[in-house]
């Protein structure tokens, strides 16, 4: 029995293979098989390949593009689709465990489908170290599948340290109090060569641009140290912090969820504590 896997470069696709092998012998279609990226054409190619192979299931990594192409395949083939799974057991029905709320909740579900369509949530499953599955030959895309395709690329405009790649992040929440209040956050970030982050409450209030937001609907970060100042720690925010190595929480409320989920805490007024940390760093230079 064959299983079809949409492959990208990098870890998430190797992790996807780990679950896919339970469903059969993997064959692959590369996500860059059709360039520029044209998701409808890829979905059509996957559907044809799945039919020709009589594939028992189709898998992709739960990346933005993996989920997008798989949803189009599901719509095209009129099949259900389980996104961001962390476990899947073959059978009728297929039993899956998938992420909800950006990983703050797990869902056990049954997938009733003649051909299960499953994406695997990145960094939740061990990577497969077997051979790369052989590629399937694809048909030429039809013009009608090329209406939606990438026609241009715009480079990021923001200078400074990128949030997703930052080693240190100094982040502020509602407790910072105002747009101007971020001056002390920026000062500490500059001393540490860190990126400035914030919570959703801050972007909703218009104090910082959305590009600074850490969380489920913002950027998911993986720094060595994350310093959270005046952030309560709603699940929306915590969903962006799963990759952080060390979390330091500064908050006046010792019972704030982030204070209970941090590695280090400082209790008190961030307007005194943050400048004091900056001063201490300067003193030691």
């Amino acid at each position: 029995m064959s299983v079809l896997v949409l492959m990208e470069d990098g870890g998430p696709s190797r992790q996807t293979l780990t679950l896919a092998r339970k469903f059969g012998e993997p064959r692959s279609v590369r996500i860059d098989a059709i360039l520029p990226f044209a998701p409808d054409a890829l979905a059509t190619a996957l559907a044809q390949a799945a039919d020709e192979l009589d594939a028992s299931a189709v898998f992709a990594a739960g990346t933005e593009r993996g989920n997008e192409v798989m949803a189009r395949l599901a719509a095209r083939m009129d099949l259900p689709f389980a996104a961001n799974c962390i476990a899947a057991a073959p059978g009728d029905p297929v039993e899956v465990t998938r992420l909800r709320w950006g990983g703050s909740l797990l869902e056990e579900a049954r997938l009733h489908s003649p051909r299960p369509l499953i994406t695997v949530a990145p960094h939740t499953v061990a990577a497969d170290d077997g051979s790369v599955p052989p590629e399937v030959d694809l048909h030429h895309p039809h013009d009608r599948d090329l209406t939606v395709r990438v026609s241009d690329h715009v480079e990021p405009s923001s200078a400074g340290v990128s949030l997703a790649a930052a080693k240190v992040i100094v982040s502020g929440g509602r407790g910072v109090g105002s747009k101007e209040g971020f001056a002390i956050i920026e000062e500490l970030a500059a001393l540490l060569g860190a990126a400035v982050g914030c919570s959703r409450a801050v972007t909703s209030a218009g104090w910082r641009p959305h590009t600074d937001q850490v969380g489920q609907t913002g950027t998911k970060v993986a720094p060595e140290v994350y310093i959270a100042c005046g952030i309560s720690g709603a699940t929306q925010h915590m969903a962006g912090l799963k990759g952080a190595k060390r979390i330091v929480a500064i908050n006046s409320d010792p019972q704030a969820p982030l204070m209970l989920n941090a590695d280090y805490t400082v209790t008190g007024d961030l307007k005194e504590i943050v400048p004091a940390i900056s001063a201490e760093i300067r003193k030691r230079r």
């Binding site: 330091v248 400082v266 209790t267 008190g268 504590i273």
Partner: peptide, 14 residues
């Protein structure tokens, strides 16, 4: 969570 103290006095520990 390990407490590094409270208020500005915690700066050194941080």
């Amino acid at each position: 969570a390990e407490s590094l103290g409270s208020g500005a006095a915690a700066a050194q520990a941080v």
